[in-house]
Design a protein around this nucleic acid. Structure first.
Length: 451
RNA sequence: CGGGGCGUAGCGCAGCCUGGUAGCGCAUCUGUUUUGGGAACAGAGGGUCGUAGGUUCGAAUCCUAUCGCCCCGACCA
């Protein structure tokens, strides 16, 4: 988080709303508006205000780090595409009104990217001709647009959304299924680092096409999908295990482990199969989809002529899959899964600031000095504090800090300063403890050392 | 895309039925007093009432059109 610098709230732009915005129906949307993370620009389209943008970048960073770990290569493709490639794949007419179509000044058909199979396949076919260049996985994190009939739930179902979309190119189906497994592993790690439990569930392939596909769902009461699962699945965690992404058996083992229990959405639910799960382990709940992986074989490589030469000199279409993570949607999902009646509770992995420093008496020489000291020490430790130095009432400051949901808060008041202590409070549990400045700094450093 | 609702100050709302030159709370600015869970008092600024037509002596209010946003459903990452 080297791009982050400590910040004084008096100089920050944090338009916290005291009243509930009228349009927000679900808790994550309401809290994102109230905490000053986003501002609606148009139906399903949002501006990301400084603190919301910070969380968005943090989520992107985690996605990038986990993709890099698996050897997947980041790139960036355009938001505006020519219709030509989509005519070549046959999807221009198939896609429907969700695709935003426009004409440029020359009358040429253009579209705002809803997904990039065609673009990435075009990059591939122009540059890769030999089996020796495989396997290859390219991905991007880019804004997409789908002209939803009825956008709602804030960033959970916007029209414009930030998405990680990755594409694997492999010589054989077996190779491509290894890529599929590899993605499952990276996704499990990614979500866990964000403080989420996302369960892979067998899914429908929809307009992308293909047979093998899993969706990743975060359990939340406000989820859009009804889900059915074996309670054993929620006991699985990825943890610190080291995975060699070139080890097919290891990746397959993770796939088997995380998909062997019954876990399906209402789209693919099979009541007869579900009935075989012991009754005490059957669960019905709601979930938010935060990612999906597909293997679709040669659908696009055949249509677009993405072929490679084999060792025998044959020309064969490559086996492909695509893999998505709803980056902007994840903010909503995280908040749905982590909040209380006072506001957001950010997991340490994605929090916009590591710790809040709350000066109870701005202007008091003793309090100011202790706050400045904390601020400097966190900065020196590479941590990113938010210092509430405003001349506000205590209640207003506590209210703001609770609303924006920083996981740790240090309260500095005249009473404590006199006794040489500050108060460290955990946002999630509300537990508070008085301790010296150096102990508070050490404790925060220790908490973030493992994240 | 079917059904419904709403556009009045930065935010949340009243006023509209029964036309008469716009109001409340919060927020903002000034001052004083306050100060460990969203302070009190005094004062101040801020709105061509979504837009365009029409009716009328006069329209936030009535009529027509149009744009935008929201909700339910169908659809979907």
């Amino acid at each position: 988080m080297k791009d982050h610098r400590p910040m004084r709230m008096s100089r920050y732009f944090l338009p916290v709303l005291k009243e509930t915005p009228r349009e927000a129906q679900i808790v994550s949307h309401r809290l994102m508006l109230q905490a000053g993370l986003i501002k609606q620009a148009s139906a399903g389209i949002y501006s990301w205000l400084p603190m919301g943008y910070k969380v968005l970048r943090r989520i992107e960073q985690i996605v990038h780090e986990e993709q890099a770990r698996a050897g997947h290569l980041a790139m960036l493709m355009p938001t505006m595409q020519s219709a030509d490639l989509w005519r070549e794949s046959g999807r221009y007419d198939a896609y429907g009104d969700e695709m935003l179509r426009v004409k440029d000044r020359g009358g040429r058909d253009m579209l705002f990217t809803p997904t990039a199979e065609e673009l990435v396949t075009d990059v591939f076919r122009a540059n890769v001709n030999s089996y020796k260049d495989l396997p290859l996985t390219l991905y991007q994190i880019q804004w997409k647009f789908r002209d939803e009939v009825r956008p709602r739930f804030g960033v959970m179902r916007g029209r414009e959304f930030l998405m990680k979309d990755g594409y694997n190119f492999d010589l054989t189906k077996e190779d491509a299924l290894h890529a599929y497994n590899r993605h499952l592993v990276t996704y499990l790690r990614t979500y866990e680092r964000m403080g989420l439990q996302a369960i892979p569930m067998r899914a429908d392939s929809g307009p992308i096409g293909g047979d093998d596909t899993h969706e990743f769902l975060v359990l939340a009461e406000t989820g859009e999908s009804e889900v059915f699962y074996d309670s054993q699945i929620t006991e699985l965690t990825f943890g610190d295990r080291e995975i060699d992404f070139d080890d097919r058996a290891a990746c397959q083992a993770v796939m088997d482990e995380f998909t062997s229990r019954y876990a399906r959405t209402d789209e693919t639910h099979d009541a007869a199969l579900f009935a075989q799960v012991p009754e005490e382990r059957r669960r019905t709940a709601r979930g938010i989809e935060v990612g999906q992986i597909f293997y679709f074989g040669t659908k696009y490589s055949e249509a677009l002529g993405a072929t490679v030469q084999t060792r025998d000199g044959d020309s064969v279409p490559v086996h492909m899959g695509s893999h998505g993570i709803g980056v902007s949607r994840l903010l909503g999902a995280i908040i749905e899964a982590s909040h209380d009646d006072k506001g957001i509770i950010w997991p340490e992995g994605v929090t916009p600031f590591h710790v809040g420093i709350l000066n109870m008496r701005a202007g008091d020489a003793g309090c100011d000095a202790v706050c400045e000291d904390l601020y400097a020490q966190f900065q020196a430790a590479g941590l990113d504090p938010l210092y509430d130095d405003r001349d506000e009432r205590a209640g207003a400051k506590f209210g703001t800090m609770d609303m924006i949901g920083l996981p740790w808060r240090i309260t500095v008041g005249p009473r404590g300063v006199k006794n040489g202590v500050v108060e460290l409070t955990c946002r999630r549990t509300g537990e508070a403890e008085d301790m010296s400045v150096s102990d508070a700094v050490a404790k925060i450093k220790a908490i973030y050392a493992g994240i």
